[in-house]
Design a protein around this nucleic acid. Structure first.
Lengths: 129, 129
DNA sequence: CTGCACCTTCCCCTATAGTGGAAGGTCAAG
DNA sequence: CTTGACCTTCCACTATAGGGGAAGGTGCAG
């Protein structure tokens, strides 16, 4: 299976597959006699795992850690649980921050909408902010 | 007022001020005879506006647009209102996406926490994802 | 024989908001 | 006269996940 087929099968680009190899998410690909990468079913399964992990918002670095555990012969479940827990914590923090920022911006915006003719003195650039 | 003083007064670094100048947020600074940048009160006011805008989550590009309107002699209030509106829309979209992702991850995590001894077949890498 | 689709490596670019550090100039104090 | 605290410019680097495009090799169809 050449890189283009594998990429098409996963809905990825060949660039992405080479990039994953470069990042260590895919092992050094087996080469055909003409130098072309030759992928087997296990690579496609690996790509599928990467995609599932990406859907869960894991970074390539986190995914790489999990794959390393698997490649070392271990069962990465504990690692995955940790990654998911960290992911949840991070998401909660991000959401909290964004909601707070939204409140700030909404306050500014309401004030801006209420003040019809604002005296923007040039010293302050704009009094709405 | 030299760059270090101005930066200290705003709680910024000299790097940041030079960067803002490079990005066009600050006009080309007036130079003293020794080549040092020499800032006046209007630059500090401008920096303060930049900081207020950044607190509202505006990007440097958006802030630059507003400053350009002001520098062209206009009143940037309408521009500011637009920027705030776009900011609100963007934040809502981001928050929605993050909340959805959080739900997805929480689902995975709950499943991972519930399944004590999961049969992680190596083909799937890890069945938790 | 030539075109076309596919593959290879390589390096640079995207967007964001700066930060780090090198090499060198300036100025007041000791 | 030198030390130290400033200042100057310029180049590279941070993190993220690839994308763009050049220059060249491979293989099959017409």
């Amino acid at each position: 299976m050449r890189i283009g087929e594998a990429a098409a099968a996963m809905g990825m680009t060949t660039k992405t597959l080479r990039f994953y190899e470069h990042r260590g998410l895919l092992p050094t690909a087996h080469r055909a006699s003409n130098g072309y990468r030759d992928y087997g079913g296990e690579t496609v399964a690996r790509l599928d795992f990467i995609r599932r992990s990406r859907v869960a918002g894991l970074t390539l670095a986190q995914i790489g850690d999990i794959l390393q555990v698997r490649d070392a012969g271990g069962t990465p479940c504990a690692h995955v649980r940790d990654a998911l827990a960290r992911q949840l914590t991070g998401l909660d923090r991000q959401i909290t921050e964004l909601v707070a920022l939204r409140a700030t911006v909404a306050e500014y915006y309401d004030a801006a909408a209420a003040a019809d003719s604002v005296s923007c003195d040039s010293e302050r650039i704009c009094s709405l902010l």
